[in-house]
Amino acid sequence: MRDVYVIGAGMIPNGRYAPGSAAEMTRKAGKAALDDAGIDFSQLDAYISASAHPLTPRGVYLAKELGVTGLAVIHIEHASATGLAAMHEAWTAVGSGRYEAALVVGVDCPEREQSVLEVIQGEGHLPPPAMFAMWANRRMHDRGTTMEDLARVAAKNWNYARSNPFAARQAKEEVTIEKVLSARMVAPPLTSMMCTPWGEGAAAAVVCSPEFAEKIGHTGPKVAMRSSHLESETYSPGHIFEGAIVGPPSMSQAAAAAAFEQSGFAPSDVDVVQVHDAFAIEELFYYELLGFCAEGDAEGLLAKGAFGPGSKAAFGLPEFSTHGGLIASGHPGGPTGLAQVHETLRQLREEDRRIGMCHMLGSGSVALAQIYERIAA
């Protein structure tokens, strides 16, 4: 594998009803990523379409919004993990030398199409809020986790979203633990402010080889995609086959360990992390499962202020969900992982951080973990 760069990213605001059709959203997000990279569509070798609510032949249909150039069009679908799965395909294709530059675009309009939730329930599986409420109740039983711990995660992410112009949820005032706890109950112990909102959106990224970046004269800080690992669930005693839409927590642990091994970095090197925090209980688990603290330490560290603003300086631990996470930034589906990439590029470029990590789950079940590094211009 040769080095792989991410030289551009763009998105439109997430929302319950994002502006325009899927085609219009694709055009806006894709154009924003191309402009950020300083290139046009004709310079690309591949277009990778990421939609969690596929309407065949969506990928080709949407690619035409940006140009008709004969390039390869690839459609990726992996439920919530679709965006990062599309980035995984781009990383593999460019890293292997098959393509020099690819545009990855995620777009979904679940409010106007059959939703993943409807599909999950139609196949007889538990809806996600119920599944993750079980995770929460189990941890509360085993670890003594409280609703205040869950609310602390949610409040942190809501407050990060206040400065994110693309976030679906933007509170006018600072969100407190008490406010989160007083919100409508969805699936005990999860209140509505601890759960991601459904919504629509689009996000995109430009992935290329170092040679392509040099050829176009790309300037400024570059971000390299150092690793990407896609992991499915493995069997263990007591394994549940019926209704397990997210797989065991160990799946994320294995994906993260593999991504760190591929990249040569360790958890202590990471400055910022974006995770699949569709429900507050997830982020608590991922502090531990991704290798950032020991099992049982997450709640105590969080209560002291770790994983939020200033965490690296105070605790040597990365900040999590800095764009508001799925809880506040929103979760359109295909664009969600690409919104994480968009935020990671922003953090590594503008906040002068060096190492970022992205993580997503996909029902079915899969987990993805990716490591990004800012390198010298």
Rank of each mutant, 00 (worst) to 15 (best):
L230A: 11
A203H: 09
E148N: 11
G83D: 03
L301R: 13
K31Y: 02
T196P: 04
P188T: 06
T176F: 02
T26I: 06
D40S: 08
R184D: 10
W91M: 03
L62D: 08
S21I: 01
G243L: 08
Y160E: 03
S321N: 14
N157P: 00
S365I: 01
M251R: 05
V223M: 13
G308H: 04
A255V: 08
A22S: 04
T69H: 06
A167D: 06
Q340H: 15
A328L: 06
P189V: 00
V223Q: 14
E65F: 01
V341P: 03
D108A: 06
D149L: 02
F315T: 06
A255D: 13
M25Y: 04
E173K: 08
G364F: 14
E173C: 00
Q370Y: 00
D142K: 10
E174W: 00
L348N: 05
F241P: 02
V206A: 12
Y17L: 11
D45N: 10
G199C: 07
K28L: 09
E211D: 12
A314V: 05
I281Y: 04
T26L: 04
L181N: 05
A81C: 13
V207R: 03
R184M: 14
K312Y: 10
Q347F: 02
T191Q: 11
K156R: 10
Y61L: 05
V105C: 04
Q170H: 05
M25D: 00
G10Y: 12
V4D: 09
G220Y: 03
P309D: 09
S232C: 13
H229S: 07
S49N: 15
L150G: 09
I74H: 13
L66V: 05
F292L: 09
E373V: 01
D271E: 03
G220V: 12
Y61E: 15
V246Y: 15
P57N: 14
A213Q: 07
G8F: 07
V68G: 00
A303G: 10
A202S: 12
D40M: 03
L117N: 07
T322Y: 12
T26K: 10
I39K: 01
W135P: 00
A294Y: 05
L44E: 02
L66W: 01
P110T: 11
R138Y: 02
P165T: 02
K31A: 13
G310C: 13
M131Q: 07
C358F: 03
H75D: 15
I12M: 04
K31V: 06
I74R: 10
F285D: 15
E200T: 05
L150I: 07
T196I: 06
R58S: 10
E242R: 15
G333F: 09
T196L: 09
E173H: 05
L150E: 07
V206W: 05
E295L: 02
T322N: 02
E261M: 11
G243I: 06
G310V: 12
A63E: 09
R354L: 11
V272R: 02
A202Y: 01
A171G: 07
A46M: 10
Q121R: 06
E65N: 01
G334S: 11
T196N: 11
L150K: 14
A130D: 13
Q114E: 14
I12W: 00
A161W: 04
A254P: 06
F279D: 12
M193I: 00
P110K: 02
V273N: 01
I7F: 04
A93Q: 14
V73T: 12
D108E: 14
H88G: 08
P19Q: 13
I371Y: 14
L326T: 14
